[in-house]
Simulated scan of single mutants.
Amino acid sequence: MKFAGAGLLALPVCFAAYGVVRLIGRVDGRYGPGPDWQAAHVVNLVGLLVFIPALVALWRSLPRTRGRDAAVVVALVGAATTVVQFVVDVVAGLLAADKAGMNEISGRFGDLPGAHLLFYVVGPPLLHLGLLALTILLRLPWWSPVLVLVGSALTIFSLDLIPVAGACLLVAMIPLARTRDRISPPPRHAQRMAVD
């Protein structure tokens, strides 16, 4: 279960690191394509890819309720669609010679039926919605859902606030990463009795 806790925290840590690398890359006014673009996006992609199995591991360790199941599924859909978005960004960064070329490649993907709506508009915010629901349903400290809300909202105002948003999400998710220590599934014999 230690993997699950660390994996959950990898998401905000890598998100914050993505924001820091992005800010550094923008200093010279030539962010993307290039090593800074790729480094930033790959770091965040790693965080997402580690987070997904960690969230599944947490989910399996918790008592099952419809609300928790729904929150985890929503977060997983959000994470998966965000992975697709970042993979497209990495590929565009590899194939394009300049920013216009990257926009053209991303635009071609976004022009696929339903792609823009699913992978850019509806999907990614579900990650934050699912995390917010989990912090509430698991009755984490009041500041945990508040920080998820703040961290999620900051990037709406400016992508330059990503490092701060990542820090908010990290602090918010520490109790979530420790949830397994506080909430245990019922013993196996109790589960059998409930089924019988």
Rank of each mutant, 00 (worst) to 15 (best):
N44Q: 15
G7Q: 11
P163F: 05
D89Q: 08
G32N: 00
L118Q: 05
P113A: 07
I174E: 02
V20D: 05
T65F: 01
R180P: 07
G67P: 02
R188E: 13
R178H: 14
I24D: 06
G130P: 13
L9Y: 14
V20F: 08
Q85P: 03
L8H: 15
A133L: 15
G7D: 10
V121L: 11
G34M: 02
P187R: 11
A71S: 13
P185Y: 11
C14S: 10
V122H: 01
A17W: 13
A40N: 02
T155G: 09
G25K: 04
L76I: 10
I52K: 04
P125Q: 08
F157V: 04
L9G: 10
L134F: 06
L131M: 15
K99Q: 05
L11F: 15
H189Y: 12
R68C: 05
V164Q: 01
G151F: 11
A177D: 14
W142V: 14
G34S: 00
A75V: 14
A79W: 06
T155N: 08
L62P: 03
Y18G: 08
N103K: 12
D89M: 08
I162K: 06
I183E: 02
L8S: 13
H128D: 10
V90Q: 00
T81V: 07
V88D: 04
P53T: 03
P187A: 11
V56G: 04
G47I: 12
H41L: 00
P187H: 10
A96M: 03
A70C: 08
V73N: 09
A75F: 12
G34R: 01
S184T: 14
V43M: 09
L126A: 03
A6P: 03
P186R: 10
L11G: 06
D196V: 14
P125N: 09
H41F: 01
A40E: 03
A167M: 05
V88L: 02
L8W: 14
A153E: 06
G29C: 06
L23Q: 14
M102W: 00
G107W: 01
V121W: 04
L134A: 06
G29M: 07
F3E: 10
V87S: 04
D89S: 07
Y120P: 00
N103C: 02
Q191K: 08
R26W: 02
L169R: 03
L55E: 05
R66P: 00
G19K: 10
D160I: 03
S152R: 05
A100E: 12
V83T: 04
I174L: 13
P187G: 13
L58P: 03
F15Q: 06
L112S: 00
